[in-house]
Design a protein around this nucleic acid. Structure first.
Lengths: 104, 104
DNA sequence: TTGTTATATTCCGATATGGGCATATCTTTC
DNA sequence: GAAAGATATGCCCATATCGGAATATAACAA
């Protein structure tokens, strides 16, 4: 068996930095593919491919507007990540305290 | 270029479900490799490999105890994930009404 | 010493990746 | 209708994956 597909879940989809940047750019307003490509300074092809992954896992949705596709953030799929990682909050603050104590 | 290595950062390391389970098992107390393998019902080889990835990205640390290796959680590396995902919290509560969330 | 237990590593195979480039599909404009 | 624009998809390549099996390494026991 190989590595799980990037389209398996939000965890895998979001492991790629460019896709995280795309999601960040979609905060607040929808954007076209070329708008994203321009902001990220990457080719249209690349952005389209990343958007497909994000679409499959449900982190973005598309709307047709003439010859453009406007992508919108659908952040609900990020909640499971937040929940899982949040379960460790007490542990990293604990490590931080320990480090602080040591520095003192 | 291929997919980024799993050892690149916490985002990639944590994209694999078995590794998330390992981290969850390490909450609270350190465990040996065989203890983890037993709890997860997977081979020792598999667990060792996953532990190496977690070690490289700094999410666990090891302590030698005779012929055993006791692994400890170091959750600090999860904070960047929590921070990044947390930046979307306002969006998943009212995901269909983006503009509203943004104005807020 | 020899054997056993605990863990790590190497080799192998199948698979999916991300990127570039070319091309296909629509839509708009002239 | 033809050309131009916006986006998606197909093919190719190099690479790293996860898993299994076997083996290596190290510590402990008899």
């Amino acid at each position: 068996m190989a590595r799980a597909a990037t389209t398996t879940d939000a965890f895998n989809a979001v492991a790629e930095p460019q896709r995280r940047r795309i999601l960040t750019l979609l905060k607040g307003r929808e954007r076209s593919v070329n708008e994203l490509a321009g902001a990220l300074r990457v080719s249209q092809t690349r952005v389209s491919k990343h958007l497909r992954v994000l679409r499959v896992v449900g982190l973005v949705s598309v709307r047709e507007a003439g010859q453009q596709r406007l992508y919108t953030l659908d952040a609900r799929g990020l909640k499971p990540i937040h929940d899982w990682v949040g379960g460790f909050e007490e542990f990293w603050s604990q490590s931080f305290d320990r480090l602080n104590a040591y520095v003192k």
